[in-house]
Design a protein around this nucleic acid. Sequence first.
DNA 1: GTGAAAGCGCTAACAG
DNA 2: CTGTTAGCGCTTTCAC
Lengths: 347, 347
Amino acid sequence: MSTDEQRRRVTARDVAAVAGVTPATVSKALNNSPEVSEATRSRVLEAVRRLGYRPNSVARGLRARRTHTLGLVTDDLEGVFTTTMMRGVEEVASEQEFGVFLCNSYGSAAKERAHLEMLYDKQVDGVILLSGYRVRERGAPVRDLPGTPTVYLFQYTNDVPVPCILPDDEMGARIATEHLLGLGRRRIAFINGPPHYEATHDRLAGYRAALTAAGVDFRHALVRMGSTWYQDEGYAQMSDLLDLSPVPDAVVCASDHMAAGALDALHSRGLRVPDDVAVVGFDDRAFSRHLRPPLTSVALPLYEMGRLAGQRLLAAIGGEKQSHEFLRIPCDLVVRESCGAPRGADR
Amino acid sequence: MSTDEQRRRVTARDVAAVAGVTPATVSKALNNSPEVSEATRSRVLEAVRRLGYRPNSVARGLRARRTHTLGLVTDDLEGVFTTTMMRGVEEVASEQEFGVFLCNSYGSAAKERAHLEMLYDKQVDGVILLSGYRVRERGAPVRDLPGTPTVYLFQYTNDVPVPCILPDDEMGARIATEHLLGLGRRRIAFINGPPHYEATHDRLAGYRAALTAAGVDFRHALVRMGSTWYQDEGYAQMSDLLDLSPVPDAVVCASDHMAAGALDALHSRGLRVPDDVAVVGFDDRAFSRHLRPPLTSVALPLYEMGRLAGQRLLAAIGGEKQSHEFLRIPCDLVVRESCGAPRGADR
DNA sequence: GTGAAAGCGCTAACAG
DNA sequence: CTGTTAGCGCTTTCAC
């Protein structure tokens, strides 16, 4: 426990005094300038060590016009998808010794503006705008940050020339469908999300592509568009699909919640999963491994997306040219019993 | 869309030039210094508006030795309790126009040190150390931040003179037990968490206090100490309790996971909840409302704890003296059907 | 009431 | 190689 709390922090001057040089030399020694002799460099480093000197990042920031700092603005800090992406961003940033300002806008434009203002004032080197909800379009940031590189994460725009980091939803639906086809299923239903989400269309395309590639007819009757992503909707749509004859032998659901509803519907009709109907969900939420049977699900690459967002932003800060592009990150199928994986297998 | 990305940011000098004054006067006008005439003040403000001037926070920070910035260090950014507390901290901070640096240590001392180092370099005005797990003891921060106020959130210490913000576990268990007593239950079992958690002892005390106050005997046979907080443990302990005769007519569980296990055990013995045995959980996790029947649970005051941590830290930054104290925030009982709330009632 | 000067801590440019 | 100088943008004395 150190005492004397209010002791002045040690500065380059203090180090210089101890090492018998000037502050400029201290700076050079620490920043690996070639133009400093080994002798003085080691004297300086010794003084640094002895005094426990750490350069003042604020002063550096003022001087360099670079703060080694990012802003991360989310509209839903508590969103189920948010934290994994945040973790990826934070990790990449701290690997490069960047600080990350956390900002939660609650989806309010006024709060977003206030946060962007604050980030601008604090001279952040770049900003990530992170949606807590499912992939969807948004326009330009509420406030312009001229000269500050920006990346969109889990959302996209056509209004600003920025990279947009997205899950590869098309692929996600495709590998789910391919897996079911590989198990010999041929009447594969698809309970999709609401139509005003980008992901919904991409996933439909992936489902369709897999069928086509396998020479299986695409049938409209087997495809449902939900009005929500929730369990009730999955239950209702599955019940409806079970009125077809013959009934489907598999179903891909656009969320794990819907898949849980579908499981309920199947159980209440006395159908066995996966023997009668195999089920795949989407999102690989924590609860899906505790469903009966444990649910096969398409995992969103949230962590990788967070890392990539961080990497892209740091690259842009480093001077790399930014452009308007969609970066789609591969999804991963996590196979569990609802699809005929051996009991107890998890992945 | 503005063009000319690399245009220099506007400074107090620019404003001064436009308003026909000096930067010093601009500063005074903006900082409500009394010694500036109304006439010049409004000319300055007009120039500020026209140029869109925003003071450079970094320069201010260097000058003032105050950065209006906090560090938030957690050992588990993705923890189920973490984000709600984070939201509270972020909210209080942004209300006061403080920025929050997000740091994730993964529980690694080396990473924590690196983060604290970074925060020190960036001259944060204060730091919150946030545990992602259940309340438990930890020592001093891995690195000393002399002169930087610190608050512990969801963890405590006796090694440093800092406030520790904790849930009132004793009260949580007490109100759960009181509620069951109020329903006429008298043989109330308690499935507790592992003994190496502080919360476990506090909750036992609360359970016991409620019984005593109601004149109900405390019986050791009705109390179990789990070795984990998970479902299996709840199942095992509940099964064990059901071998008693007479069986308990209610059970308080120290986590919602354990309560889920207890429900399973009850169902498999053919007992009805709440008619035969009423069940209360702890944590009010999202899934608890989807259990059968929906689970009554003690909600941890995570959001309030986050806010209080922020408030305390800002107060300390404002000069208020810090001391070693435990601040226990009230828990809240969320009543659902597992306890005899009318079907469909949620709270 | 306003301006001139100085300095927060650092580093780039230049001189020696 | 090392030191001197200057300035990042702001605010706070202190003159006037």
